[in-house]
Write a protein that binds this DNA or RNA. Structure first.
Length: 701
DNA sequence: AGCACGCCGACT
DNA sequence: GTCGGCGTGCTC
């Protein structure tokens, strides 16, 4: 990409450092030229630069022999930071800036070291020189070598006499890792074949498709071991760590200290130290959520993406990167293998990546439990009679309902007023236990109304039911403890592991929650899985609705009946014939993928076209609409018939901002991205759109 | 994004 | 008289 620039720097002594200042604005186009500082710099060095009237940190993105500007106008950075970004991650960031229509600075901010610094301590060693010692001093020397600790002052006196040397060492702040006892099992024939196929294709991608319990993690571990054996580094991406501690624990157990764990719950010091251990090569395996794809691993040989279908791989901030897509680029760029694993792969992955299958469950695990679809058309109750019976007789069960709160719609029965968020155009959700109505988009809260503030009526109706209401209903109907796990639970620190541990330890109980109950954790004694209102995910106006619904039911089926008692799954739905639900009930992933790919091809959805979404937002409607219209025109002028433009269409108001959206469907991805990026840059720099925010989402999920 | 420069209203 | 409102433009 910029290799011409860098090789030029080889032929001539570089005199100029091109620096990208780390700021979030779009209204600044770097890089900026600086003279070289006295300390050595390379591509990836982080430097302090005088910039206008301020001082900023910036990343050196290129070394050049000369500048377009007059040499006299140039100045040098004032400081070079000790930690630097590996040069290949600078290239990765610059690629991301273009690929996601963001800015170099915003992309670079993702690959720079986390804030923080090394923690040091004083380490003392005896020199062997003899001297007159009192009793205390003799005891001191006896315990060396070791950390000086409280005895530093006394040791300093002995250092002056040449009896000890004291040096400063870096202390490691190690994150807590629950290293499950490692059980390196004999590979099954299928696992051996899968590993062989992965090993035979260096620099290529493979989809490892296998149901829960088919032994995917052991294949990841073996592939990682092979990479380490070759002296290569490994990155393992997992969905949210709090929900999938088992995979992390197995890597920690198998590879010990060479594993660095990167996730949001780490303290600043721990995060810095883990980053540093990877950067120095002390740790060679990075395990973490989507941001771990930027781990500073040198000589990368393997990237594993566990549960590749998981929506958490998509980043919500700018740049709106997709860790799977970034992993694909990084693997291709460094020649590493890419291993994507899932029981329910995304249709586009199944379509584009060669599949390796694990068909059987390992270790005596049973066949997948039978799934029964319960028709809820015309039902009066939230629970089907069969569901109620099954929950009563089951020891432990998992119940999934993809809706938080108590009821999701409040309206006045006499005047019809509906309670809506003052900041967003959405209905407020009643949270009864907390005594408030909440907006699930912006977090707005208000007290539960006693009467209608519009007409004064006392009859306020509550429609729909969420996890909180079902919790109350289950508690009333069944004689078993109910453990509720949803975003409300997640907000409280350590609440998730505690709740899961209590459910694990209980003799009987219902784990009730939103989609997070279907993820990673592994309870051998769960014999029943229930999905309530399975078509709620299908009603989302989103081309991934089918895929999400299928994955949710399939994942839950993987959770139920892992133990010797077996189990079953009940799916309550008003649309029992929907393909996603029918195929999930039949455990037929291949049939689902086939049908879904046909549907996508007919509708020109990924992987048959790429989608790009641009959202403009402003406090008032007119400027947001005008900006979207200008964008649409500019993009249309600069693309061909291969790019279809939809919109501008109004979106519901969010966080007090009016929004408009345009969507591009394209078979010329690079050209469409380029046109969109240029149009957004121009619009963002135009002063008539000063109050407008632009957000570009390439490959929205 | 900051931050200064610059050109207009109401205040000790 | 000047303190300060935020529109405009620049940063190697």
């Amino acid at each position: 990409m910029r290799s011409s620039g860098r090789s030029a720097a080889y032929r001539h002594p570089a005199l100029i450092a091109k620096v990208e200042p780390l700021t979030t604005t779009r209204r600044l186009n770097g890089p900026f030229d600086y003279l070289l500082p006295e300390e050595p710099v390379h591509v990836g060095s982080i430097v302090r630069i005088p910039f206008g009237h301020q001082k900023l940190d910036g990343v050196v993105v290129e070394l050049a022999a000369h500048s377009e500007l007059e040499q006299e106008r140039l100045i040098a950075p004032t400081r070079v930071q000790q930690d630097s970004v590996p040069a290949d991650l600078v290239d990765l960031a610059l690629w991301m800036a273009v690929e996601y229509c963001s800015t170099p600075a915003r992309a670079l901010a993702l690959v720079t070291p986390p804030p923080g610094r090394a923690k040091t301590f004083f380490y003392a060693e005896a020199t062997g020189v003899e001297g007159k010692l009192n009793e205390r001093q003799a005891a001191l020397l006896e315990r060396l070598p070791g950390a000086a600790g409280e005895d530093l002052a006394a040791l300093r006196r002995l250092e002056k006499r040449g009896l000890v040397v004291i040096s400063e060492r870096v202390a490691r702040r190690a994150p807590r890792m629950d290293a499950a006892p490692d059980r390196q099992v004999e590979l099954t024939e299928a696992q051996r074949a899968a590993l062989a196929e992965i090993e035979a294709a260096p620099g290529e991608a493979r989809l490892l498709q296998g149901v829960t319990g088919s032994g995917k993690t052991e294949v990841y571990l073996r592939a990682a071991a092979e990479a380490l054996e070759r002296g290569e580094g490994v990155i393992v991406l997992v969905p949210e760590i709090a929900l999938t501690p088992q995979t992390v624990a197995r890597f920690a157990a198998r590879f010990g200290d060479t594993v660095a764990l990167l996730h949001s719950a780490l303290s600043e010091g721990e995060r810095y130290d883990e980053w540093r251990r990877l950067r120095s090569g002390e740790a060679r395996v990075a395990v973490g959520p989507r941001s771990a794809v930027f781990a500073p691993v040198e000589k990368l040989g393997l990237i594993v993406v566990d549960e590749e279908h998981d929506a958490s791989y998509k980043h919500e901030g700018d740049p709106r990167y997709d860790a799977r897509h970034v992993a694909e680029f990084r693997a291709a760029y460094t020649g590493a293998r890419l291993l994507l694993g899932s029981a329910t792969p995304r249709p586009e992955t199944a379509h584009r990546v060669a599949t390796v299958r694990l068909r059987e469950r390992v270790g005596g695990a049973r066949e997948l439990p039978p799934v029964k679809v319960l028709d809820m058309r015309g039902a009066q109750h939230a629970l089907h009679p069969e569901t109620r019976r099954a929950l009563t007789s089951a020891g432990k069960s998992i119940v999934l309902l993809n809706r938080r709160g108590w009821s999701n719609f409040l309206s006045c029965q006499s005047c019809g007023k509906a309670w809506e968020c003052p900041n967003c155009d959405v209905a407020l959700v009643l949270h009864r236990a907390g005594g408030f109505l909440a907006c699930h988009h912006c977090g707005h809260r208000e007290r539960i109304p006693q009467r209608c503030d519009h007409c004064g009526s006392l009859s306020v109706a509550r429609f729909g039911s969420g996890t909180e209401r079902i919790e109350a209903e289950l508690q009333e109907a069944l004689d078993v403890p109910v453990f509720r796990l949803d975003a409300d639970t997640t907000q409280i620190k350590d609440a998730v592991p505690e709740l899961l541990a209590r459910f694990h330890g209980a003799a009987r109980g219902v784990l009730l929650g939103t989609q997070m109950v279907a993820k990673g954790h592994d309870f051998a004694d769960v014999t029943l899985g229930v999905v309530l209102d399975a078509d709620s995910t299908l009603r989302f106006p989103d081309f991934r609705a089918e895929e999400r619904t299928f994955a949710l039911i399939a994942q839950l089926a993987g959770r139920a009946g892992r133990g010797p008692k077996g189990g079953r799954v009940l799916v309550q739905t008003a649309t029992p014939d929907a393909p996603a639900i029918a195929h999930a009930a039949a455990h037929d992933t291949d049939a689902f993928l086939r049908d879904e790919l046909a549907r996508r091809e007919a509708l020109r959805y990924p992987p048959y076209a790429d989608l790009i979404r641009v959202i403009t937002s402003a406090p008032a409607q007119a400027p947001a609409r005008a900006a979207a219209a200008v964008l649409a025109d500019t993009i249309a002028e600069n693309t061909t018939g291969a790019t279809e433009l939809l919109g501008p269409a109004p979106l519901f108001r969010l966080r007090q901002r009016e929004r408009y959206q345009i969507v591009l469907k394209t078979t010329e991805r690079a050209a469409a991205i380029a046109a969109t990026g240029a149009a957004v840059d121009a619009a963002a720099n135009a002063k008539e759109h000063r109050q407008v925010n632009f957000s570009v989402d390439v490959d929205p999920v």
